[in-house]
Amino acid sequence: MMRHLQKYSPILPVLLAYGVLLGIGLAYPGKWQLIAQLAFYCALGQAFNLFMGMTGYVDFGYVAFLGVGTYGMAVSIYFLYDKGLGIGLIFIGLALAAVFSTGLSLAVGAVALRLRGAYFAIATIGVNEGFRYFVEGARIWNGADGMIFSRHLRKAVGRETAMTLSTQWADILVFGVAVLAAILTLVYMRNKVGYALTALREDEDAAKVMGINVTKFKIIAFITSAVLAGLLGASAWALKLTYVYPEDVFEIHYTVEAIIIVLLGGAGTLLGPIVGALIYGASKYFLAIVLPGFQLLIFAPIIIVIIVLFPEGTVGILKKKIRGTALEKFII
């Protein structure tokens, strides 16, 4: 039994990292929003990495899953607020977010997962943009008008609760998504899914010839990653900000942020997204404060330098360094 559990020991540093982050947030309430923003980047990176890191497939339209997740929560609060469900609305919202993102990921998976490389990346961009224009063009869920549901949330649960939900519980949910994503990543890594996907990442055709049901495992990882994104959207964008506009949530920029985070930390590693998110989030915040208006100009060249000089990411390098030491068991 002990031995069985030992293979999951790399989760310890991850839990430690999230615990420390959460602890800092609780100890310094005035920094909570910053911690929440960092947690959002962690969760985004962790969820994105689950599929991209293991398979090497770059889902450029990943943000679409966050988008439909946001709508899941929004629809629940906006349309059901007067049904006397109270806090139950939030659970319905999370459930809807999961359903919507599963649905979309099945549809995308059926089409795009047959493609590889750049074709896959472009197809997923197409899905994201297409979906956004469908929402706007067919006036689904108010179309481009979006939904503003601060009032609805307040009516449903009361002013105080609504405020705590938006400024605290939404962020704790984000932590939850991040931890869940990390745990699932590790479980997949240590099981058949992970082995199959590693084989796939190295050489998809060879993996197929070996008799591995590549498609099945790809879809499992894809849907898991999508649902996590949906939950993240529901908490970080809908519950926290209490409004949704399609142009704001189906914005490719967030996929790029996810890619940057994963790359900074090291694609396919467990700890990487956390390290990447902390570096990315903290430096972004820092630049916004000291050089307002210039952060992108400074950030973009730095990113190029990092990809060129450290393509394996921070944790990738670290892994190499500690090979053969006792730490090896904990850092993957």
């Binding site: 990346a121 790359l263 973009a300 990809i307």
Partner: peptide, 14 residues
């Protein structure tokens, strides 16, 4: 990997 060149060209655009 694809990821690197996608991100690099994006950053060049920025």
């Amino acid at each position: 990997p694809e990821l690197a060149s996608l991100l690099a060209t994006f950053s060049i655009g920025v």
